[in-house]
Simulated assay, not measured.
Amino acid sequence: MRFRILLLLLGLTACESDDKPNDLIAEDKMAVILSDIHVLESQVNDMHISNTDSALFIYQKLKVKALKKYNIDTANFNMSLRYYITNPASLKNVYVDVKRLLEEKKKKIPTIKAKQYSKKQPVDSIKRISARYKLP
């Protein structure tokens, strides 16, 4: 939630600049990363952690882990995010892709849940005990 507010505030006060950094994360890759980060933010929010410091700590750890997944360090991510925030047209392109990616992930949720529930087979306790104790 704080991330979104920060992003909005920085976007509103941003000045457009054409100075692209050399190691700027491409728009499509940035969209994938941001979609993952928004999912992580939602997961931490759903944990209902009453201590905001603990929630922020967990979120930061998960964010670093997500960035490592894409071989990006936090400095490069923050620099790229700062660039996109100061360039509203580019940021809009990124967030169009973020929205599309999140909608695709949302469509997959029922399928994933169905697969998880289908894997859980009822256990025959008598057979399990018989096998464990080698009963006839």
Rank of each mutant, 00 (worst) to 15 (best):
M30H: 00
L9D: 13
Q60H: 14
M79A: 15
I58F: 10
E16I: 00
S17C: 03
Q116N: 07
F3V: 04
Y83W: 06
V39A: 11
S50G: 14
N45M: 15
E103H: 09
Y133D: 11
V39L: 12
M79W: 02
R4T: 09
S130M: 11
E104S: 08
K127D: 15
M79R: 08
E103A: 13
A114R: 02
V96C: 01
S54G: 07
K61Y: 10
D28G: 02
I109N: 08
Y117W: 02
I109P: 05
I126D: 14
T52D: 13
V98A: 04
S54P: 03
P88F: 07
Q43S: 12
K65F: 07
K29A: 06
V44R: 05
D53E: 15
A55Q: 01
K63S: 05
R2C: 06
A131Q: 10
P136A: 12
I49Y: 05
A14E: 01
I109F: 03
K105E: 09
D23F: 07
A14T: 04
L81T: 01
A14Y: 00
L102M: 14
K105V: 07
Y95R: 00
K134C: 03
D124N: 11
K99R: 14
L67W: 05
L24C: 07
A26M: 05
A14L: 07
K113G: 04
D23H: 07
M79E: 04
L10F: 09
K120M: 06
Y84H: 05
Q60I: 03
E103D: 14
P110H: 08
R4F: 07
I49L: 14
K113M: 10
D23V: 13
S90Q: 14
N71C: 09
D73V: 03
Y59I: 08
D19G: 10
R4K: 04
Y117P: 03
F57P: 11
Q116W: 00
C15K: 09
L24F: 06
S42L: 15
R4Y: 07
E104A: 00
I37Q: 01
A75T: 11
I85A: 09
V96L: 08
N78A: 15
V32D: 14
E27K: 01
A75K: 11
Q60W: 02
D73E: 09
A26S: 14
T111V: 06
K134M: 05
V39Y: 08
L67S: 08
L91P: 00
N45T: 14
K108Y: 02
L135M: 05
A114W: 03
K61L: 09
P21H: 06
D28P: 00
Y59R: 11
F77S: 05
E16P: 03
P110A: 07
I126S: 14
L81Q: 03
D23K: 15
Q43V: 09
G11A: 12
P110K: 04
H48M: 15
A31H: 02
D73Q: 10
A31P: 00
G11M: 04
Y95K: 01
V94E: 03
S80M: 03
S17D: 12
T74M: 15
R4A: 09
Y83C: 02
S118T: 10
Y83V: 03
D53S: 10
T74Q: 13
M47W: 01
Y117C: 06
K120Y: 09
V94P: 04
S118G: 12
E41V: 03
G11P: 04
D124I: 07
F57G: 11
